[in-house]
């Protein structure tokens, strides 16, 4: 179902009005993580435009976005996609869930990963 209310909720979190996106795909074209994504970044934005947020929330893409900003740096319409991805993650996380359970992280990761990775990851995933 197309819903403008869903779109506005995300706008409050992200500060990004995705209506200006004209689906040129430049974000997806330059996304380093695109190969692993089930939906390309521009498709996630399209779903948000349509307010079909459920589908976006169910996508792996939002957890694969590494906030590298390559997309927003080149976006001709000035859309900060990473903010939108974060708003989708946060929508789920604020419901009380978490995407990643710290205690179930593999031992070698816990042992070897830099603190920066753990802090950043837990910030984004829990």
């Amino acid at each position: 179902m197309v819903s403008s209310e869903n779109r506005r909720k995300l706008l409050d979190i992200s500060g990004e009005d995705v209506t200006s996106c004209y689906q040129c795909g430049k974000c997806s074209a330059g996304c380093a993580m695109a190969a692993m994504m089930d939906l390309l970044p521009h498709q996630v934005i399209r779903l948000v435009q349509l307010g079909q947020v459920e589908e976006a929330l169910a996508s792996r893409t939002i957890w694969l976005c590494a906030s590298c900003l390559a997309c927003s740096a080149r976006c001709p319409r000035g859309v900060s996609l990473p903010n939108v991805m974060e708003s989708l993650r946060v929508t789920l996380l604020r419901l009380g869930g978490r995407h990643l359970d710290p205690v179930r992280l593999p031992a070698d990761v816990l042992e070897n990963a830099p603190e920066q990775a753990l802090v950043a990851g837990l910030r984004k995933y829990t």
Binding site: A32, M33, A35, M36, W63, L64, A66, S67, C68, A70, L100, L105, P106, V109, A113, A117, L118, A120, G121, L122, K124, Y125
Partner: peptide, 23 residues
């Protein structure tokens, strides 16, 4: 040199970040 390494996605199971890093 300006492409992303995968960043904190390294914490995701399945070595998802290793693809970009390998590139």
């Amino acid at each position: 040199k300006i492409e992303c390494c995968g960043s904190y996605v390294a914490l995701e199971p399945g070595e998802l970040a290793s693809g970009p890093s390998r590139m």
